[in-house]
Write a protein that binds this DNA or RNA. Structure first.
Length: 1003
RNA sequence: GCCGGUGUGGCGGAACUGGCAGACGCAGCGGAUUCAAAAUCCGCCGGGCUCAACCCCCGUGCAGGUUCGAUUCCUGUCACCGGCACCA
């Protein structure tokens, strides 16, 4: 049993000569810290798991999650508590509604800033990170958030990243079988295309169900006949394929490694030898590092990647199952970038044996008769061939130079340059299979190796980019789609819908067909002739997972002397990140991960590294993988670990997963039309997962896509029970701030600004007039608000109320400290209404005022309706109105204060607990039932409705509640003022909306 | 350029499915209380007309449209914010 906290000692809490029990910042601080200690000591918000003694199985579950923070040295900013307060309100509300609430917090703690700090100072990143975590934890506790701190962990804890590494190994040991069925989704159906253990791939290859295609990909024996391209260049049906036993060990290994969901492949990176680090594209400016201006080289690097592209279709389809903001869904759809079209082979003249055809992807196969040249990316393999087989008409030097520069600037600078088309002729030709004509092959950097096949058929008449290119290099433009408006393709390209012209050969004609019908016709012909197939292409690329950093999870892989890779055995996990003597980067022409400095750790034996003896003899000399995982590794599954944070045997127990992540039918956020279109409308609950996930919209693709991918892979492999991690997602808006500009646009710090009586802003030092502008909070604009300062000034309850009262949760809103006083005054008035400021005793009305009682019911109903739709600003406004009205009417009774304290508690929990305790309750109110509004108290006997004439309000009348149309019309038409207004006019029509309004249409 | 979002008093915002525009808060103005101030309490607070009130007129970025009726729906347009970057 808990005891109510001590009464404040008289006088100490008051400032100046204020009464001793006035709700001042000092008293707020005293109340708040006392309750925070109480909650900590009593473990009020510890949520037991199924199987624990005090678990209550009859309650429904609610998993309410924040995006966990990266603990930076700077501490919390005011943006963090916005989303955290919102989830805290919902969590507290759901507890009062009888739910078991999982509301956890932890730390996304691997990352670059700590590493860079270590490079500068030599302090171990763990030291700085642990210190930042302590600061964050202390700050978060000061807000009174009802987290279950017993589940706290950081992604840097070896007990946590052990499982991050374990997931890596699970994906490493799996492949994506396009033929396999998934486990059953919560909707009772399965999906085709599923991750399976790599052993199933080997088994199918050994049995002969799968053979190896020309490109090294496994081919289904049944599928090969249906895929004409599989046989291209090889003659008859299965002749291009090989049986498993026809391959030597090395080739077998290559085939397998090439199918793993985690695989090694070469990627071009921006390596800066001087900084000894790989740079992101936006850290490179004009081929120089943003930091220091050192030269940057583009180097191929073997990096681990995840085969997220295998999941493209399911990631797209399953968006329909989840309750997410439409804008986020759209962003993911566009990121995945599905497009339908065809792959078509253009035979190459004087082709090398290894490359008989130039394969292109196009979304407009219907324009093939207008393809007058080809363009390949500068990285395309055919370039090598073109360079080694010089032809007289080829300017080899120009080609070599062009390819060199394009490769080096790739992506980084392409976008900063003008869109002028550049390119070079390769000296090679191929045949347009539709026209039979010979057409030239060019290379240009507007074709990207990473999309489609890295080659296009150029149809200048009907594609903007091809048109501009053709104009620049004087290539022929042939119209094959007639513009209904009659424009000429020589003047401008036409990419709209029209009918086919000039599009026929001996076997097929597209003339006269619409674009849609022409596509179908040409694809049918291509497939019949073995020249092409209908395909779907995705923009999504695989997820590069290697970082050449120190402060990340080690990748649990070793290499033998031949460079083959082997997994560390699960029993040897975690592979603990070794300490380094110094963190300065390795200056080198060749990319060197920082971890390579831990030489003793790197060079070991298979046995010592924990590689299973079945895989590699224990005495074998091996070299550990020295790349580490990216920051997004730990955050891609952290929501699972909260469910069972200390489990040493599994990443999450089956029971905890089934309860917190499964549990279809558990209450999610209630229905209820939101005030804005971005607010999710309740959809039928199609998948389980987190019931409410709140975080910033900047994670719309990265984190939220990677998490979905891992969840699906783990689901396919039977490790977790649901295919989508987050059922309901919500993005809070950014909290901006005012910055003050001088006439010359320079910025004046916030505290050097004075507001004049007339509302103008001036610089205190000079009296110069300033213009306020709303911007992101940043040091640069000198407008950062520190939450600690606000709490010191008003207390955490006021801070929480103010951030929720500023406006809709999803909107970006400017912080205005002077507005916080309004929320502070509200709490002060509520306190003064019920607590004697001199004695601290409760001061309650003996009997209930009927109007106050009625308004209390309405306030309860409003708050009860607004919390589930996350409309906290209007809920708070209703509570303010209640306190104002009750104060004016002589206060509230004990029963009324109890209910008011309960509805206030999700928003301002400290004051609510304090009032509750003063009412004589020994237990926290956190698990009290949320008060119920009596529906009878929500309606009046009479309502006032407006009477408008021609749509303009002219008068108002009282009508009985529930009166029907005829009765209302009679009251309206009988009203003397209405008679006066319509005197001498004919009423043509009377529109009555019962309970709402009357409109008279007069002639 | 493309995609997404937002435009309502001096400021933050409210208005649920088309039905009284401006709830609530800040700032401001007036009054009560006070020796005075702070705090508190009460009242006013979009613009025009008016000594004032009533009445009336205008008003949700701008221009049109649909409707008995539009902040809400449609078309066009402007401004600001965020994201993407030649995706065949």
């Amino acid at each position: 049993m808990s005891t109510p906290p001590n009464q404040p000692s008289s006088g100490r809490a008051s400032s100046d000569d204020a009464p001793p029990f006035r709700y001042t910042a000092a008293l707020a601080d005293q109340i708040e810290t006392r309750w925070q200690k109480h909650w900590d000591a009593e473990q009020t918000f510890r949520q037991p798991n199924p199987g624990e003694a005090d678990f209550e199985p009859d309650r429904p579950k609610f998993y309410c999650l924040d995006m966990f923070p990266y603990p930076s040295g700077a501490g919390l900013h005011v943006g963090h508590p916005e989303g955290y307060t919102a989830t805290d309100i919902v969590s507290r509300y759901k507890r009062m509604k009888g739910c078991n609430v999982l509301h956890p917090m932890g730390w996304d703690a691997f990352g670059l800033p700590a590493e860079q700090y270590a490079i500068q100072t030599g302090v171990h990143p763990a030291t700085t990170t642990r210190k930042s975590i302590d600061t964050f934890r202390r700050q978060l506790k000061r807000f009174g958030f009802s987290y279950d701190w017993s589940r706290e962990y950081g992604t840097i804890d070896p007990e946590y990243y052990k499982w991050t590494q374990w997931i890596f190994l699970r994906l490493y040991n799996s492949w994506f079988d396009p033929q396999a069925e998934t486990p059953t989704y919560p909707d009772g159906k399965t999906r085709r295309g599923c991750a399976r253990p790599i052993a199933t791939l080997i088994a199918q290859l050994e049995s002969g169900d799968l053979r190896i295609g020309l490109d090294g990909e496994p081919v289904h024996v049944g599928a090969a006949a249906a895929n004409p391209l599989a046989a291209v260049g090889g003659g008859a049906e299965m002749e291009g394929t090989l049986r498993w036993h026809e391959l030597d060990k090395t080739r077998q290994r290559a085939v397998i490694d090439n199918q793993r969901l985690a695989y090694l492949d070469e990627m071009t990176v921006n390596w800066c030898p001087a900084l000894g680090t790989v740079l992101a594209n936006d850290e490179v400016i004009d081929g120089k590092s943003e930091r220091g201006g050192h030269p940057v080289l583009r180097k191929p690097l073997r990096q681990w990647q995840f085969r997220i592209t295998s999941y493209a279709q399911r990631l797209l389809d399953d968006l329909a199952l989840i309750d997410w903001p439409a804008s986020t869904r759209t962003q993911q759809e566009e990121w995945i970038g599905r497009s339908e079209g065809a792959e078509i082979d253009f035979p190459i003249e004087h082709a090398p044996r290894s490359l008989p055809v130039l394969r292109v992807f196009t979304t407009r196969p219907d324009t093939i008769f207008g393809a007058t040249y080809m363009v390949v990316a500068p990285e395309h393999p055919i370039i090598e061939h073109a360079l080694t087989r010089p032809r007289e008409e080829l300017d080899r030097e120009a080609l070599r130079r062009y390819v060199e520069t394009s490769r080096n600037k790739a992506e980084v600078d392409r976008m900063t340059e003008t869109r002028e088309k550049t390119g070079v002729f390769t000296g090679m030709y191929c045949t347009n299979p539709a026209t039979g004509k010979q057409i030239p092959i060019w290379t240009a950097d507007y074709v990207l190796m990473g999309y489609g096949t890295g080659a296009i058929m150029a149809v200048p008449a009907h594609d903007e980019r091809d048109w501009a290119f053709a104009k620049a290099f004087n290539l022929p433009i042939v119209e094959v789609i007639r513009d209904p408006k009659g424009g000429s393709v020589q003047e401008a390209c036409f990419s709209g819908d029209g009918v086919g012209v000039n599009s026929a050969n001996a076997e097929v004609s597209l003339n006269g067909l619409s674009v849609e019908r022409a596509k179908a016709a040409i694809i049918a012909w291509l497939e019949k002739s073995g020249l092409g197939v209908k395909t779907v292409n995705y923009r999504l690329r695989d997820w590069v997972f290697s970082r050449q950093r120190y402060w990340g999870e080690p990748i649990p892989i070793v290499f033998d002397e031949q460079g083959n890779h082997y997994p560390v055995g699960e029993s040897a996990l975690p592979v603990v990140l070794p300490d380094l003597a110094d963190y300065s980067p390795v200056e080198s022409e060749e990319p060197q991960p920082l971890l390579a400095k831990a030489t003793e750790w790197v060079h070991t034996t298979a046995g010592a590294a924990g590689v299973s003896a079945d895989v590699l003899a224990p005495g074998t000399q091996v070299r550990r993988e020295t790349n580490t995982m990216p920051g997004s590794a730990g955050s891609s599954w952290y929501f699972l670990r909260y469910c069972d944070a200390k489990n040493p045997r599994r990443l999450i127990s089956r029971e905890a997963d089934a309860y917190w992540m499964g549990g279809v039918g558990a209450p999610t956020l209630g229905p209820g039309p939101g005030p804005s279109a971005t607010r999710s409308v309740a959809v039928p609950r199609a998948v389980a997962g987190v019931d409410l996930y709140i975080g910033g919209p900047e994670h719309a693709v990265g984190h939220l896509l990677y998490s979905r991918f891992w969840q699906k892979a783990l689901f396919d492999l039977g490790e977790v029970c649901t295919p989508e991690p987050f059922n309901t997602l919500f993005h809070q808006g950014m909290i901006t701030s005012y910055a003050y500009q001088r006439a010359d646009k320079s910025i004046v710090a916030m505290d050097a600004v004075r507001e004049e009586a007339d509302g103008r802003f001036v610089e205190i030092a000079t009296g110069q007039a300033l213009t306020p502008v709303v911007t992101k909070m940043s040091k640069r604009y000198k407008n950062v608000i520190n939450p600690d300062d606000i709490i010191a000034q008003f207390g955490a309850d006021t801070f929480r109320l103010y951030e929720m009262y500023m406006g809709p949760l999803e909107a970006s809103k400017p912080w205005n400290t002077k507005d916080t006083i309004g929320c502070f005054r509200f709490l002060q008035r509520a306190w003064r209404m019920t607590v004697d400021e001199q004695t601290g005793d409760l001061r309650l009305a003996a009997s209930a005022n009927a109007d106050v009682e009625k308004q209390l019911h309405r306030t309860i109903a409003k708050v009860d309706a607004d919390i589930p739709r996350l409309a906290f600003n209007t809920a708070i406004a209703a509570m303010i109105e209640f306190v104002n009205a009750a104060t004016g009417a002589g206060g509230v009774t004990r029963g009324q204060l109890e209910r008011f304290a309960l509805i206030l508690s999700p928003f301002a929990p400290h004051m609510a607990e304090e009032l509750w305790a003063r009412l004589g309750h020994a237990e926290s109110l956190a698990f009290e039932p949320f008060p119920m509004a009596d529906p009878k108290m929500l309606v009046d006997a009479e309502v006032e409705i407006p009477i408008s004439i021609q749509g303009k309000v002219r008068h108002k009348v009282m009508v009985p509640t529930g009166a029907d149309k005829a009765a209302i019309e009679a009251i309206a038409m009988g009203d003397p003022r209405v008679k006066e207004l319509i005197a001498g006019k004919t009423v043509q029509k009377v529109i009555v909306v019962p309970g709402k309004m009357v409109n008279l249409v007069i002639g």
